[in-house]
Design a protein around this nucleic acid. Sequence first.
DNA 1: GCCGTTTTCGGCCCGACTGTTTTCAGTCG
Length: 599
Amino acid sequence: MSTNQKISALLSHLAAGIDLLGKGSFRASGHRRAARLLNGLELDVADIVNNHPEDAQQRLEQIEGIGKGTAKRIVEYVTTGSLAEHQKMLEQVPASVIELLEIPGLGPAAVRTLWREMQIESIDDLKRQLDTDADALASLPRLGKASVEKIRRAVDFRTKTSGRIQLGRALPFGEQLREELREVPGVLQVELAGSLRRGRDAIGDVDLLACCADPEALRSRFRELPGIADLLSDGDSKLSARFDAPGGGGVQVDLRIVPRESWGAALMYFTGSQDHNIAMRGRASRRGMLLNEYGLFERRVAEQQGEDEGSGGKAEAGDLVVGDSETAIFEALDLEPIPPELREEAHGLEPVPDDLVTLEDIDAELHSHTTESDGRLELEELARHAIELGLHTLAITDHSQSSALAGGLEPDRLRRHIDAIRELDERIPELQLLAGSEVDILPDGSLDYEDELLVQLDVVVASPHAALDQPPDVATERLLAAIRHPLVHIVGHPTGRIVGRRRGLEPDMTKLVQAAAECDTVLEINANPRRLDLRDSHARAALSAGCKLAINTDAHSTRHFTLLRYGVLTARRAGLTRKDCINTWSPQQLRTWLEEKRR
DNA sequence: GCCGTTTTCGGCCCGACTGTTTTCAGTCG
Protein backbone atom coordinates (compact mmCIF):
# COMPACT_ATOMS: atom_id res chain seq x y z
CA MET A 1 0.00 0.00 0.00
CA SER A 2 1.24 3.44 -0.82
CA THR A 3 1.35 6.08 1.88
CA ASN A 4 -1.69 7.75 0.30
CA GLN A 5 -3.64 4.52 0.59
CA LYS A 6 -2.51 3.90 4.16
CA ILE A 7 -3.60 7.35 5.30
CA SER A 8 -6.81 6.96 3.34
CA ALA A 9 -7.57 3.68 5.12
CA LEU A 10 -6.81 5.23 8.51
CA LEU A 11 -9.11 8.18 7.84
CA SER A 12 -11.97 5.92 6.74
CA HIS A 13 -11.49 3.83 9.82
CA LEU A 14 -11.39 6.93 11.98
CA ALA A 15 -14.62 8.12 10.37
CA ALA A 16 -16.35 4.87 11.27
CA GLY A 17 -15.16 5.22 14.86
CA ILE A 18 -16.45 8.78 15.03
CA ASP A 19 -19.83 7.56 13.74
CA LEU A 20 -20.00 4.87 16.40
CA LEU A 21 -19.06 7.27 19.17
CA GLY A 22 -21.72 9.66 17.92
CA LYS A 23 -19.22 12.50 17.61
CA GLY A 24 -20.71 14.30 14.65
CA SER A 25 -21.65 12.68 11.39
CA PHE A 26 -20.40 15.62 9.34
CA ARG A 27 -16.96 15.28 10.84
CA ALA A 28 -17.09 11.61 9.92
CA SER A 29 -18.17 12.30 6.34
CA GLY A 30 -15.47 14.95 6.09
CA HIS A 31 -12.87 12.33 6.98
CA ARG A 32 -14.40 9.98 4.42
CA ARG A 33 -14.22 12.59 1.73
CA ALA A 34 -10.57 13.23 2.50
CA ALA A 35 -9.96 9.47 2.46
CA ARG A 36 -11.53 9.09 -0.99
CA LEU A 37 -9.53 12.01 -2.25
CA LEU A 38 -6.22 10.61 -1.01
CA ASN A 39 -6.99 7.26 -2.53
CA GLY A 40 -7.40 8.79 -5.98
CA LEU A 41 -4.58 11.32 -5.67
CA GLU A 42 -1.77 10.95 -8.22
CA LEU A 43 0.97 12.68 -6.29
CA ASP A 44 2.46 11.00 -3.28
CA VAL A 45 1.85 13.01 -0.09
CA ALA A 46 4.87 11.33 1.52
CA ASP A 47 7.05 13.01 -1.13
CA ILE A 48 5.61 16.41 -0.30
CA VAL A 49 6.29 15.95 3.41
CA ASN A 50 9.77 14.49 2.91
CA ASN A 51 10.91 16.94 0.25
CA HIS A 52 9.49 20.07 1.88
CA PRO A 53 9.65 19.53 5.62
CA GLU A 54 9.52 23.26 6.37
CA ASP A 55 6.24 24.06 4.61
CA ALA A 56 4.66 20.67 3.93
CA GLN A 57 1.48 21.62 5.76
CA GLN A 58 0.87 24.69 3.57
CA ARG A 59 1.65 22.76 0.39
CA LEU A 60 -0.81 20.04 1.33
CA GLU A 61 -3.53 22.60 2.05
CA GLN A 62 -3.14 23.82 -1.54
CA ILE A 63 -4.70 20.55 -2.68
CA GLU A 64 -8.42 20.99 -3.30
CA GLY A 65 -10.35 19.09 -0.64
CA ILE A 66 -7.53 18.96 1.90
CA GLY A 67 -7.85 21.45 4.73
CA LYS A 68 -5.91 22.21 7.87
CA GLY A 69 -7.03 19.07 9.70
CA THR A 70 -6.16 16.54 7.03
CA ALA A 71 -2.90 18.30 6.18
CA LYS A 72 -1.87 18.08 9.82
CA ARG A 73 -2.77 14.39 9.95
CA ILE A 74 -0.81 13.63 6.78
CA VAL A 75 2.31 15.30 8.18
CA GLU A 76 1.82 13.45 11.45
CA TYR A 77 1.47 10.10 9.72
CA VAL A 78 4.44 10.55 7.38
CA THR A 79 6.75 11.74 10.17
CA THR A 80 5.65 9.38 12.97
CA GLY A 81 4.05 6.43 11.19
CA SER A 82 0.77 6.66 13.07
CA LEU A 83 -2.14 8.93 13.92
CA ALA A 84 -2.66 9.75 17.59
CA GLU A 85 -6.34 10.49 17.03
CA HIS A 86 -6.84 7.10 15.39
CA GLN A 87 -5.06 5.35 18.28
CA LYS A 88 -7.22 7.20 20.78
CA MET A 89 -10.36 6.23 18.90
CA LEU A 90 -9.28 2.56 18.96
CA GLU A 91 -8.99 2.72 22.74
CA GLN A 92 -12.67 3.59 22.85
CA VAL A 93 -13.99 1.45 19.98
CA PRO A 94 -12.54 -2.02 19.30
CA ALA A 95 -11.65 -2.54 15.64
CA SER A 96 -13.88 -5.61 15.57
CA VAL A 97 -16.89 -3.42 16.44
CA ILE A 98 -16.12 -1.20 13.45
CA GLU A 99 -16.07 -4.34 11.31
CA LEU A 100 -19.74 -4.88 12.17
CA LEU A 101 -20.53 -1.88 9.94
CA GLU A 102 -19.57 -4.02 6.95
CA ILE A 103 -22.76 -6.04 7.39
CA PRO A 104 -25.35 -4.54 5.03
CA GLY A 105 -28.25 -3.22 7.04
CA LEU A 106 -26.16 -2.46 10.09
CA GLY A 107 -25.41 1.23 10.38
CA PRO A 108 -23.84 3.22 13.17
CA ALA A 109 -27.02 3.36 15.26
CA ALA A 110 -27.67 -0.37 15.16
CA VAL A 111 -24.03 -1.31 15.80
CA ARG A 112 -23.93 1.08 18.74
CA THR A 113 -27.05 -0.60 20.20
CA LEU A 114 -25.64 -4.12 19.72
CA TRP A 115 -22.38 -3.10 21.27
CA ARG A 116 -23.67 -1.07 24.20
CA GLU A 117 -26.77 -3.10 25.06
CA MET A 118 -25.60 -6.65 24.30
CA GLN A 119 -21.79 -6.40 24.43
CA ILE A 120 -21.60 -7.68 20.83
CA GLU A 121 -18.10 -6.69 19.80
CA SER A 122 -17.47 -8.66 16.61
CA ILE A 123 -19.11 -10.45 13.72
CA ASP A 124 -18.38 -13.73 15.54
CA ASP A 125 -20.18 -12.44 18.64
CA LEU A 126 -23.10 -11.51 16.44
CA LYS A 127 -23.20 -14.96 14.80
CA ARG A 128 -23.16 -16.61 18.22
CA GLN A 129 -25.98 -14.42 19.46
CA LEU A 130 -28.03 -15.16 16.32
CA ASP A 131 -27.56 -18.88 16.91
CA THR A 132 -28.25 -18.96 20.65
CA ASP A 133 -30.79 -16.26 21.40
CA ALA A 134 -31.97 -14.25 18.41
CA ASP A 135 -35.08 -13.16 20.34
CA ALA A 136 -32.95 -11.12 22.70
CA LEU A 137 -31.67 -9.18 19.70
CA ALA A 138 -35.20 -8.65 18.45
CA SER A 139 -36.16 -7.03 21.74
CA LEU A 140 -33.59 -4.23 21.40
CA PRO A 141 -34.87 -0.74 20.61
CA ARG A 142 -35.60 -0.18 16.89
CA LEU A 143 -34.79 -3.78 16.08
CA GLY A 144 -37.38 -6.54 15.79
CA LYS A 145 -37.94 -9.98 14.36
CA ALA A 146 -37.84 -8.88 10.72
CA SER A 147 -34.68 -6.81 11.18
CA VAL A 148 -32.93 -9.65 12.97
CA GLU A 149 -33.77 -12.07 10.15
CA LYS A 150 -32.43 -9.54 7.67
CA ILE A 151 -29.20 -9.31 9.64
CA ARG A 152 -28.97 -13.09 9.78
CA ARG A 153 -29.25 -13.36 6.00
CA ALA A 154 -26.69 -10.60 5.54
CA VAL A 155 -24.21 -12.36 7.83
CA ASP A 156 -24.72 -15.64 5.94
CA PHE A 157 -24.26 -13.83 2.64
CA ARG A 158 -21.04 -12.27 3.86
CA THR A 159 -19.54 -15.64 4.72
CA LYS A 160 -20.40 -16.87 1.22
CA THR A 161 -18.91 -13.96 -0.74
CA SER A 162 -15.77 -11.94 -0.30
CA GLY A 163 -16.86 -8.39 -0.93
CA ARG A 164 -16.40 -7.00 -4.39
CA ILE A 165 -16.68 -8.93 -7.64
CA GLN A 166 -14.27 -8.68 -10.56
CA LEU A 167 -15.53 -6.63 -13.49
CA GLY A 168 -15.05 -9.61 -15.81
CA ARG A 169 -17.66 -11.59 -13.91
CA ALA A 170 -19.99 -8.75 -12.99
CA LEU A 171 -20.33 -7.15 -16.42
CA PRO A 172 -21.51 -10.24 -18.36
CA PHE A 173 -23.85 -11.08 -15.48
CA GLY A 174 -25.31 -7.56 -15.44
CA GLU A 175 -25.67 -7.57 -19.23
CA GLN A 176 -27.54 -10.86 -19.08
CA LEU A 177 -30.01 -9.45 -16.54
CA ARG A 178 -30.36 -6.35 -18.67
CA GLU A 179 -31.28 -8.44 -21.72
CA GLU A 180 -33.83 -10.45 -19.72
CA LEU A 181 -35.53 -7.27 -18.53
CA ARG A 182 -35.47 -5.74 -22.01
CA GLU A 183 -37.79 -8.53 -23.13
CA VAL A 184 -40.59 -7.42 -20.82
CA PRO A 185 -43.51 -6.02 -22.88
CA GLY A 186 -43.76 -2.25 -22.61
CA VAL A 187 -40.12 -1.74 -21.66
CA LEU A 188 -38.66 1.46 -23.08
CA GLN A 189 -35.14 1.39 -21.67
CA VAL A 190 -32.97 -0.80 -19.46
CA GLU A 191 -29.38 0.14 -18.73
CA LEU A 192 -26.59 -0.75 -16.34
CA ALA A 193 -25.58 2.04 -13.98
CA GLY A 194 -23.25 2.41 -11.02
CA SER A 195 -19.61 1.42 -10.90
CA LEU A 196 -20.30 -1.31 -13.44
CA ARG A 197 -21.17 1.31 -16.05
CA ARG A 198 -18.10 3.30 -15.04
CA GLY A 199 -15.97 0.20 -15.65
CA ARG A 200 -14.32 -0.10 -12.24
CA ASP A 201 -12.06 -3.14 -11.86
CA ALA A 202 -14.25 -4.59 -9.11
CA ILE A 203 -17.81 -3.77 -8.16
CA GLY A 204 -19.91 -4.13 -5.03
CA ASP A 205 -23.32 -4.60 -6.61
CA VAL A 206 -25.12 -4.50 -9.95
CA ASP A 207 -27.28 -1.42 -10.60
CA LEU A 208 -29.96 -1.56 -13.25
CA LEU A 209 -32.13 1.33 -14.36
CA ALA A 210 -35.32 0.93 -16.36
CA CYS A 211 -38.34 2.77 -17.62
CA CYS A 212 -41.40 0.91 -18.70
CA ALA A 213 -45.00 1.58 -19.76
CA ASP A 214 -46.06 -1.23 -17.45
CA PRO A 215 -43.90 -1.04 -14.32
CA GLU A 216 -45.69 -3.92 -12.62
CA ALA A 217 -44.74 -6.26 -15.47
CA LEU A 218 -41.12 -5.24 -14.98
CA ARG A 219 -41.29 -5.70 -11.23
CA SER A 220 -42.78 -9.17 -11.48
CA ARG A 221 -40.21 -10.20 -14.10
CA PHE A 222 -37.44 -9.03 -11.79
CA ARG A 223 -38.82 -11.09 -8.89
CA GLU A 224 -38.69 -14.17 -11.12
CA LEU A 225 -35.25 -13.73 -12.64
CA PRO A 226 -33.20 -16.93 -12.62
CA GLY A 227 -30.70 -17.15 -9.78
CA ILE A 228 -32.58 -14.83 -7.43
CA ALA A 229 -31.93 -15.94 -3.85
CA ASP A 230 -33.40 -13.30 -1.57
CA LEU A 231 -35.68 -10.34 -2.28
CA LEU A 232 -34.43 -7.53 -0.05
CA SER A 233 -36.78 -4.72 -0.94
CA ASP A 234 -39.77 -4.50 -3.18
CA GLY A 235 -41.08 -0.97 -3.65
CA ASP A 236 -42.78 0.82 -6.54
CA SER A 237 -39.60 2.32 -7.92
CA LYS A 238 -36.84 0.32 -6.23
CA LEU A 239 -36.33 -3.43 -6.02
CA SER A 240 -33.31 -5.07 -4.57
CA ALA A 241 -32.30 -8.71 -4.41
CA ARG A 242 -29.40 -11.04 -3.77
CA PHE A 243 -28.54 -13.38 -6.61
CA ASP A 244 -26.46 -16.49 -6.78
CA ALA A 245 -23.72 -15.32 -9.09
CA PRO A 246 -22.31 -17.62 -11.75
CA GLY A 247 -19.18 -19.31 -10.52
CA GLY A 248 -20.22 -19.34 -6.88
CA GLY A 249 -20.80 -16.59 -4.38
CA GLY A 250 -23.54 -14.04 -4.57
CA VAL A 251 -24.18 -10.53 -5.76
CA GLN A 252 -26.71 -7.87 -4.89
CA VAL A 253 -28.73 -6.39 -7.73
CA ASP A 254 -30.71 -3.16 -7.48
CA LEU A 255 -33.36 -2.25 -10.05
CA ARG A 256 -34.74 1.25 -10.19
CA ILE A 257 -37.74 2.16 -12.26
CA VAL A 258 -37.88 5.78 -13.32
CA PRO A 259 -40.27 7.94 -15.34
CA ARG A 260 -39.35 8.47 -18.97
CA GLU A 261 -38.93 12.21 -18.62
CA SER A 262 -36.33 11.64 -15.88
CA TRP A 263 -34.35 8.95 -17.73
CA GLY A 264 -31.19 10.99 -18.34
CA ALA A 265 -31.11 12.55 -14.88
CA ALA A 266 -31.69 9.19 -13.22
CA LEU A 267 -29.08 7.42 -15.36
CA MET A 268 -26.60 10.14 -14.47
CA TYR A 269 -27.52 10.06 -10.81
CA PHE A 270 -27.29 6.28 -10.44
CA THR A 271 -24.13 6.02 -12.54
CA GLY A 272 -22.27 8.30 -10.11
CA SER A 273 -19.64 8.46 -8.93
CA GLN A 274 -20.72 10.12 -5.76
CA ASP A 275 -17.99 12.72 -6.19
CA HIS A 276 -19.03 13.36 -9.77
CA ASN A 277 -22.64 13.86 -8.68
CA ILE A 278 -21.63 16.30 -6.00
CA ALA A 279 -19.54 18.26 -8.51
CA MET A 280 -22.44 18.33 -10.99
CA ARG A 281 -24.91 19.45 -8.34
CA GLY A 282 -22.51 22.16 -7.27
CA ARG A 283 -22.18 23.39 -10.85
CA ALA A 284 -25.96 23.40 -11.28
CA SER A 285 -26.38 25.26 -8.02
CA ARG A 286 -23.88 27.95 -9.00
CA ARG A 287 -25.89 28.47 -12.16
CA GLY A 288 -29.15 28.93 -10.29
CA MET A 289 -30.36 25.43 -11.03
CA LEU A 290 -31.04 22.27 -9.08
CA LEU A 291 -29.99 18.82 -10.23
CA ASN A 292 -31.43 15.62 -8.81
CA GLU A 293 -32.39 12.20 -10.12
CA TYR A 294 -35.57 13.63 -11.66
CA GLY A 295 -33.99 16.29 -13.75
CA LEU A 296 -32.31 19.65 -13.97
CA PHE A 297 -34.63 22.37 -12.67
CA GLU A 298 -34.71 26.12 -12.37
CA ARG A 299 -34.13 26.86 -8.73
CA ARG A 300 -36.80 28.71 -6.90
CA VAL A 301 -36.42 29.88 -3.31
CA ALA A 302 -39.46 28.79 -1.34
CA GLU A 303 -41.41 31.49 0.42
CA GLN A 304 -41.19 30.88 4.12
CA GLN A 305 -44.41 31.07 6.05
CA GLY A 306 -44.83 32.97 9.33
CA GLU A 307 -41.98 33.74 11.69
CA ASP A 308 -39.21 32.26 9.59
CA GLU A 309 -39.65 34.97 7.02
CA GLY A 310 -36.44 36.66 6.09
CA SER A 311 -34.24 33.84 7.35
CA GLY A 312 -33.63 32.66 3.80
CA GLY A 313 -35.85 30.04 2.23
CA LYS A 314 -34.98 26.51 1.23
CA ALA A 315 -34.18 26.06 -2.43
CA GLU A 316 -36.70 23.99 -4.27
CA ALA A 317 -37.20 22.79 -7.80
CA GLY A 318 -38.95 25.14 -10.19
CA ASP A 319 -39.52 24.50 -13.89
CA LEU A 320 -37.88 21.49 -15.46
CA VAL A 321 -34.99 22.50 -17.73
CA VAL A 322 -34.13 19.03 -19.00
CA GLY A 323 -34.28 15.48 -17.68
CA ASP A 324 -34.65 12.87 -20.38
CA SER A 325 -31.08 12.76 -21.66
CA GLU A 326 -27.66 12.81 -20.03
CA THR A 327 -26.16 14.68 -22.95
CA ALA A 328 -28.75 17.43 -22.68
CA ILE A 329 -28.03 17.85 -18.97
CA PHE A 330 -24.30 18.21 -19.62
CA GLU A 331 -25.05 20.74 -22.34
CA ALA A 332 -27.41 22.74 -20.16
CA LEU A 333 -24.53 23.05 -17.70
CA ASP A 334 -22.12 24.13 -20.48
CA LEU A 335 -20.18 20.87 -20.38
CA GLU A 336 -19.14 18.46 -23.07
CA PRO A 337 -20.62 15.07 -22.16
CA ILE A 338 -18.30 13.14 -19.83
CA PRO A 339 -18.26 9.39 -20.53
CA PRO A 340 -19.14 7.21 -17.53
CA GLU A 341 -15.56 5.93 -17.20
CA LEU A 342 -14.32 9.43 -16.41
CA ARG A 343 -16.99 10.36 -13.91
CA GLU A 344 -14.59 10.09 -11.00
CA GLU A 345 -13.00 12.53 -8.62
CA ALA A 346 -9.62 12.13 -10.36
CA HIS A 347 -11.05 13.57 -13.58
CA GLY A 348 -13.45 16.15 -12.17
CA LEU A 349 -15.50 18.05 -14.75
CA GLU A 350 -12.52 18.68 -17.03
CA PRO A 351 -13.02 18.53 -20.80
CA VAL A 352 -12.59 15.06 -22.26
CA PRO A 353 -10.06 14.57 -25.08
CA ASP A 354 -11.98 13.90 -28.28
CA ASP A 355 -9.75 10.98 -29.23
CA LEU A 356 -10.29 8.99 -26.04
CA VAL A 357 -9.46 5.43 -27.01
CA THR A 358 -12.31 3.08 -27.99
CA LEU A 359 -12.54 -0.65 -28.58
CA GLU A 360 -12.79 -0.07 -32.34
CA ASP A 361 -9.49 1.84 -32.36
CA ILE A 362 -7.46 -1.22 -31.37
CA ASP A 363 -5.92 -2.90 -34.42
CA ALA A 364 -2.90 -4.65 -32.94
CA GLU A 365 -2.38 -7.27 -30.25
CA LEU A 366 1.12 -7.16 -28.84
CA HIS A 367 1.04 -9.92 -26.23
CA SER A 368 -0.16 -13.45 -27.03
CA HIS A 369 0.72 -17.08 -26.40
CA THR A 370 0.67 -20.22 -28.54
CA THR A 371 0.87 -23.93 -27.72
CA GLU A 372 4.65 -23.46 -27.84
CA SER A 373 4.33 -22.27 -24.21
CA ASP A 374 0.99 -22.27 -22.35
CA GLY A 375 -1.44 -21.06 -25.05
CA ARG A 376 -4.28 -23.17 -26.43
CA LEU A 377 -3.87 -22.35 -30.12
CA GLU A 378 -1.20 -23.38 -32.62
CA LEU A 379 0.73 -20.48 -34.11
CA GLU A 380 -1.20 -20.50 -37.38
CA GLU A 381 -4.60 -20.89 -35.68
CA LEU A 382 -3.82 -17.87 -33.54
CA ALA A 383 -2.75 -15.82 -36.56
CA ARG A 384 -5.88 -16.79 -38.52
CA HIS A 385 -8.05 -15.82 -35.58
CA ALA A 386 -6.36 -12.42 -35.38
CA ILE A 387 -7.14 -11.89 -39.07
CA GLU A 388 -10.79 -12.80 -38.49
CA LEU A 389 -10.90 -10.19 -35.76
CA GLY A 390 -9.58 -7.60 -38.20
CA LEU A 391 -6.21 -7.02 -36.53
CA HIS A 392 -3.36 -5.85 -38.73
CA THR A 393 -0.59 -6.84 -36.29
CA LEU A 394 -0.10 -9.72 -33.90
CA ALA A 395 2.94 -10.21 -31.67
CA ILE A 396 3.64 -13.78 -30.61
CA THR A 397 5.15 -13.55 -27.15
CA ASP A 398 5.48 -16.97 -25.57
CA HIS A 399 6.96 -17.36 -22.10
CA SER A 400 10.68 -17.42 -21.41
CA GLN A 401 12.67 -20.29 -19.88
CA SER A 402 12.18 -19.44 -16.17
CA SER A 403 8.42 -19.83 -16.45
CA ALA A 404 8.84 -23.60 -16.49
CA LEU A 405 5.27 -24.36 -15.45
CA ALA A 406 4.01 -22.28 -18.36
CA GLY A 407 6.24 -24.18 -20.78
CA GLY A 408 8.75 -21.36 -21.15
CA LEU A 409 11.11 -21.69 -24.11
CA GLU A 410 14.80 -22.45 -23.73
CA PRO A 411 17.00 -20.41 -26.10
CA ASP A 412 17.21 -23.08 -28.83
CA ARG A 413 13.47 -23.61 -28.88
CA LEU A 414 12.92 -19.83 -29.03
CA ARG A 415 15.28 -19.61 -32.05
CA ARG A 416 13.25 -22.24 -33.88
CA HIS A 417 10.02 -20.50 -32.84
CA ILE A 418 11.30 -17.21 -34.28
CA ASP A 419 11.99 -18.99 -37.58
CA ALA A 420 8.48 -20.49 -37.61
CA ILE A 421 6.90 -17.08 -36.96
CA ARG A 422 8.92 -15.43 -39.73
CA GLU A 423 8.04 -18.22 -42.14
CA LEU A 424 4.33 -17.83 -41.38
CA ASP A 425 4.60 -14.06 -41.68
CA GLU A 426 5.85 -14.55 -45.24
CA ARG A 427 2.88 -16.74 -46.07
CA ILE A 428 0.12 -14.47 -44.74
CA PRO A 429 0.54 -10.96 -46.11
CA GLU A 430 -2.73 -9.71 -44.55
CA LEU A 431 -1.21 -9.84 -41.05
CA GLN A 432 2.00 -8.30 -39.69
CA LEU A 433 3.27 -11.09 -37.46
CA LEU A 434 5.91 -10.06 -34.94
CA ALA A 435 8.33 -12.48 -33.36
CA GLY A 436 8.45 -11.69 -29.69
CA SER A 437 8.74 -13.09 -26.23
CA GLU A 438 7.22 -12.41 -22.85
CA VAL A 439 10.51 -12.42 -20.99
CA ASP A 440 10.53 -12.85 -17.24
CA ILE A 441 11.88 -9.97 -15.23
CA LEU A 442 13.80 -12.01 -12.68
CA PRO A 443 13.65 -10.96 -9.02
CA ASP A 444 16.93 -9.05 -9.30
CA GLY A 445 15.75 -7.07 -12.34
CA SER A 446 17.77 -8.99 -14.93
CA LEU A 447 16.04 -10.58 -17.92
CA ASP A 448 15.56 -14.27 -18.61
CA TYR A 449 17.49 -14.32 -21.95
CA GLU A 450 20.86 -12.99 -23.01
CA ASP A 451 20.90 -9.77 -25.05
CA GLU A 452 22.30 -11.74 -28.00
CA LEU A 453 18.97 -13.59 -28.21
CA LEU A 454 16.69 -10.67 -27.29
CA VAL A 455 18.11 -8.61 -30.12
CA GLN A 456 16.81 -11.16 -32.64
CA LEU A 457 13.21 -10.53 -31.54
CA ASP A 458 10.97 -7.90 -33.13
CA VAL A 459 9.33 -7.12 -29.82
CA VAL A 460 10.22 -7.81 -26.19
CA VAL A 461 7.54 -7.73 -23.51
CA ALA A 462 9.19 -7.97 -20.09
CA SER A 463 6.95 -9.04 -17.22
CA PRO A 464 7.31 -9.99 -13.55
CA HIS A 465 5.90 -13.45 -12.74
CA ALA A 466 7.59 -14.57 -9.53
CA ALA A 467 8.64 -12.92 -6.25
CA LEU A 468 5.57 -10.70 -6.33
CA ASP A 469 5.75 -9.95 -2.62
CA GLN A 470 9.07 -8.12 -2.71
CA PRO A 471 9.40 -4.99 -0.56
CA PRO A 472 8.51 -1.83 -2.50
CA ASP A 473 12.08 -0.51 -2.83
CA VAL A 474 13.34 -3.83 -4.24
CA ALA A 475 10.36 -4.01 -6.61
CA THR A 476 11.06 -0.45 -7.77
CA GLU A 477 14.68 -1.24 -8.66
CA ARG A 478 13.65 -4.50 -10.33
CA LEU A 479 11.11 -2.82 -12.60
CA LEU A 480 13.34 0.21 -13.25
CA ALA A 481 16.01 -2.15 -14.54
CA ALA A 482 13.56 -3.65 -17.02
CA ILE A 483 12.20 -0.26 -18.10
CA ARG A 484 15.75 1.01 -18.75
CA HIS A 485 16.91 -2.13 -20.54
CA PRO A 486 17.63 -1.00 -24.12
CA LEU A 487 16.10 -4.12 -25.70
CA VAL A 488 12.78 -4.01 -23.84
CA HIS A 489 9.81 -2.46 -25.65
CA ILE A 490 6.93 -3.08 -23.26
CA VAL A 491 6.67 -3.93 -19.58
CA GLY A 492 3.79 -6.39 -19.22
CA HIS A 493 1.36 -6.42 -16.24
CA PRO A 494 3.90 -4.35 -14.27
CA THR A 495 2.69 -5.07 -10.73
CA GLY A 496 1.47 -8.65 -11.11
CA ARG A 497 -1.60 -7.93 -9.01
CA ILE A 498 -4.75 -10.05 -9.19
CA VAL A 499 -7.90 -8.00 -8.60
CA GLY A 500 -9.22 -8.68 -5.10
CA ARG A 501 -6.79 -11.58 -4.59
CA ARG A 502 -3.15 -10.61 -4.79
CA ARG A 503 -1.73 -7.22 -4.04
CA GLY A 504 1.28 -7.74 -6.29
CA LEU A 505 4.35 -5.50 -6.42
CA GLU A 506 4.02 -2.03 -4.95
CA PRO A 507 6.79 -0.07 -6.64
CA ASP A 508 7.23 3.68 -6.51
CA MET A 509 5.02 4.45 -9.49
CA THR A 510 6.25 8.02 -9.81
CA LYS A 511 9.79 6.78 -10.44
CA LEU A 512 8.63 4.05 -12.84
CA VAL A 513 6.55 6.30 -15.03
CA GLN A 514 9.26 8.96 -15.17
CA ALA A 515 11.80 6.37 -16.28
CA ALA A 516 9.37 4.88 -18.79
CA ALA A 517 8.72 8.30 -20.29
CA GLU A 518 12.45 9.03 -20.52
CA CYS A 519 13.35 5.66 -22.09
CA ASP A 520 10.27 5.55 -24.36
CA THR A 521 9.39 2.20 -22.82
CA VAL A 522 5.71 1.36 -23.07
CA LEU A 523 3.75 0.19 -20.03
CA GLU A 524 1.00 -2.35 -20.54
CA ILE A 525 -2.57 -2.29 -19.40
CA ASN A 526 -3.20 -6.02 -19.29
CA ALA A 527 -6.85 -6.36 -20.29
CA ASN A 528 -7.51 -9.64 -18.54
CA PRO A 529 -10.13 -8.66 -15.94
CA ARG A 530 -8.32 -10.71 -13.31
CA ARG A 531 -5.33 -8.44 -13.79
CA LEU A 532 -6.25 -4.99 -15.17
CA ASP A 533 -2.62 -4.12 -14.58
CA LEU A 534 -1.68 -1.27 -14.84
CA ARG A 535 -4.80 -0.26 -12.95
CA ASP A 536 -6.66 2.96 -13.77
CA SER A 537 -4.88 5.24 -11.31
CA HIS A 538 -1.43 3.99 -12.32
CA ALA A 539 -2.25 4.41 -16.00
CA ARG A 540 -3.41 7.96 -15.27
CA ALA A 541 -0.10 8.69 -13.53
CA ALA A 542 1.77 7.19 -16.50
CA LEU A 543 -0.08 9.43 -18.95
CA SER A 544 0.56 12.58 -17.00
CA ALA A 545 4.26 11.68 -16.94
CA GLY A 546 4.15 11.46 -20.73
CA CYS A 547 4.28 7.67 -21.14
CA LYS A 548 2.79 5.69 -23.96
CA LEU A 549 0.65 2.70 -23.08
CA ALA A 550 -0.34 -0.61 -24.66
CA ILE A 551 -3.63 -2.42 -24.11
CA ASN A 552 -3.00 -6.15 -24.55
CA THR A 553 -5.20 -9.15 -23.89
CA ASP A 554 -2.33 -11.55 -23.15
CA ALA A 555 -4.39 -14.03 -25.20
CA HIS A 556 -3.94 -17.72 -24.46
CA SER A 557 -7.10 -18.71 -26.37
CA THR A 558 -9.66 -17.24 -28.77
CA ARG A 559 -11.92 -16.34 -25.85
CA HIS A 560 -9.22 -14.11 -24.37
CA PHE A 561 -9.45 -11.68 -27.28
CA THR A 562 -12.95 -10.78 -26.08
CA LEU A 563 -11.44 -9.49 -22.83
CA LEU A 564 -10.03 -6.49 -24.65
CA ARG A 565 -13.02 -4.38 -23.64
CA TYR A 566 -12.00 -4.51 -19.98
CA GLY A 567 -8.61 -3.12 -20.82
CA VAL A 568 -10.20 -0.39 -22.90
CA LEU A 569 -12.55 0.54 -20.04
CA THR A 570 -9.57 0.81 -17.70
CA ALA A 571 -7.64 2.85 -20.26
CA ARG A 572 -10.57 5.25 -20.71
CA ARG A 573 -10.81 5.65 -16.95
CA ALA A 574 -7.21 6.87 -17.12
CA GLY A 575 -7.96 9.20 -20.03
CA LEU A 576 -5.88 7.32 -22.63
CA THR A 577 -6.07 8.81 -26.13
CA ARG A 578 -5.51 7.10 -29.48
CA LYS A 579 -2.13 8.67 -30.09
CA ASP A 580 -0.77 7.47 -26.72
CA CYS A 581 -2.03 3.93 -27.22
CA ILE A 582 0.36 2.02 -29.46
CA ASN A 583 -2.24 -0.65 -30.32
CA THR A 584 -4.04 1.97 -32.44
CA TRP A 585 -1.03 2.77 -34.58
CA SER A 586 -0.62 1.75 -38.22
CA PRO A 587 1.55 -1.29 -39.04
CA GLN A 588 4.31 0.97 -40.36
CA GLN A 589 4.20 3.30 -37.35
CA LEU A 590 4.50 0.32 -35.03
CA ARG A 591 7.37 -1.22 -36.98
CA THR A 592 9.24 2.08 -37.04
CA TRP A 593 8.85 2.57 -33.31
CA LEU A 594 9.95 -0.99 -32.52
CA GLU A 595 13.13 -0.45 -34.51
CA GLU A 596 13.91 3.09 -33.43
CA LYS A 597 13.36 2.34 -29.77
CA ARG A 598 16.54 0.23 -29.90
CA ARG A 599 18.77 2.87 -31.47
C1' DG B 1 -13.88 17.07 8.36
C1' DC B 2 -14.37 20.94 4.22
C1' DC B 3 -15.79 25.17 2.14
C1' DG B 4 -17.24 30.25 0.85
C1' DT B 5 -20.06 35.72 -5.88
C1' DT B 6 -25.65 33.85 -0.77
C1' DT B 7 -21.62 32.40 4.53
C1' DT B 8 -15.00 32.72 8.23
C1' DC B 9 -20.16 30.36 10.78
C1' DG B 10 -23.27 27.40 9.37
C1' DG B 11 -24.17 24.78 6.04
C1' DC B 12 -23.01 19.95 4.08
C1' DC B 13 -27.33 15.46 -1.73
C1' DC B 14 -31.49 13.86 -0.74
C1' DG B 15 -35.23 10.61 -1.71
C1' DA B 16 -36.85 5.58 -1.41
C1' DC B 17 -37.65 1.87 1.35
C1' DT B 18 -38.11 -0.81 5.57
C1' DG B 19 -39.45 -1.79 9.99
C1' DT B 20 -40.77 -0.12 14.09
C1' DT B 21 -43.35 2.99 15.24
C1' DT B 22 -48.01 5.61 15.88
C1' DT B 23 -45.21 9.87 13.05
C1' DC B 24 -40.36 8.55 12.01
C1' DA B 25 -35.40 6.81 12.51
C1' DG B 26 -32.08 4.21 10.20
C1' DT B 27 -29.88 2.67 6.10
C1' DC B 28 -28.60 2.91 1.45
C1' DG B 29 -26.85 4.67 -2.77
